[in-house]
Design a binder for these strands. Structure first.
Lengths: 204, 204
DNA sequence: ACCAACTAACTATGCACATAGATAGTGGCG
DNA sequence: CGCCACTATCTATGTGCATAGTTAGTTGGT
């Protein structure tokens, strides 16, 4: 149910087409909420039907056309209401930790590989998020700059501060996951010290 | 797709009915993977059809009956194969951080409430997980004890060690989330120092 | 003139999961 | 005896999301 609010967040800056939003998901919101275009287009139509958005037909080239969505007052209200409502948290469902709990079933080398994948995955995320922080600090994010341009000067600090705060939390989380998996690698080495990886030659 | 592996993990210890598994989900695996009974029962039937489980009709009282599932060799193999396969990670989708990124839209008091809810949520999880660690250390987990009883002595350390490792990681993660939200509270106070919460009386 | 890469949008299928409710038997307590 | 909490299972409906494929126009380069 968060997709529509991610969309409203972007549309609160300026009108956009479904494709714009899809692209923007890769570049900005996508770092906290990913969505494929096949989910975005129908959601936009639904939101228009519910009066949160106004759709406008725009010609493009000779015969091409696209639909540009504007946020309505009802849309702004819906977004603000969501922001003022405390989130419901869902139940834990964590494949990586489920696997970790039964790692004795895996071959030592497969267990290590799992830990390495965990490190790699979170290293990648960490990089993206750090990059995002740098963009915020150096005003190099197009979307954020446009948002700031339409924000009263007195509130600009807050807009930047909350985004920075968000990504800082994610970077720390990634660090924690990386450290955890490194401990995992050490633990595996320790537990199989007398019985090296199945495909590894035993020492003489 | 992880549900079936969580079920196989439990059934690798001993045969159980759907209801047993449902209960066990609340007490052990549920701490890393939650599932409602309405998802468990049909999955068990599917797994039986695929040959991963054997179902056995058991009478219970006068007219009552229940179905007890045994893991088959194919089931053990499927679980081991999954354990030896590196996980695919899914895209980021994090409602709490999505909201955090746009917190300037919320009333200060609502923003604080969101942070408090985050702290409360992760404090609850932290407690569960710490409890789990204590149970592991003191051999007070029924399920784990039964698993250990059926495990060769040489491998018992590993079984416990991986579980401990898993929950330690989750505890650290919870700590990190709590710290983050506390920073959030401090940040909100700082950013609205000149403009206290909307419903609060201004100082004379 | 043509092709590749991009813009733009839509459709289809299926699983995973949340939520809610239905049905029926059991065991114990007062 | 009647009631309640628990055991046990199943059904139904809707949303969210992944994955994959389709159609059509545009732009820029060789």
């Amino acid at each position: 149910m968060s997709l529509r609010y991610a969309l409203l967040a972007l549309l609160s800056v300026e009108p956009m087409t479904g494709y714009d939003l899809y692209k923007e998901f890769e570049a900005s919101v996508g770092h906290v909420w990913h969505a494929p275009d096949s989910q975005i287009y129908p959601e936009l139509r639904r939101m228009e039907k519910e009066g949160l958005l106004d759709g406008e037909e725009v010609t493009w080239g000779q015969r091409g056309k696209k639909r540009r969505y504007h946020i309505t007052e009802a849309g702004v209200k819906a977004f603000r209401d969501w922001m003022n409502t405390t989130l419901e948290y869902t139940r834990v469902r964590d494949p990586a930790h489920l696997k970790a709990a039964y790692l004795e079933w895996a071959e030592p080398e497969a267990a290590r590989e799992q830990m390495r994948a965990h490190i790699e995955h979170h290293t990648g995320l960490r990089q993206q998020w750090e990059q995002r922080i740098r963009e915020i600090d150096q005003d190099r994010s197009e979307m954020l700059n446009r948002r700031l341009a339409g924000t009263p000067e007195a509130d600009r600090d807050r807009v930047k501060a909350f985004k920075r705060f968000t990504y800082e939390g994610l970077v720390t989380r990634a660090d924690q996951e990386i450290t955890w998996a490194q401990h995992g690698l050490a633990l595996i080495d320790e537990l199989y010290a007398n019985r090296p990886g199945a495909r590894q030659a035993a020492k003489k």
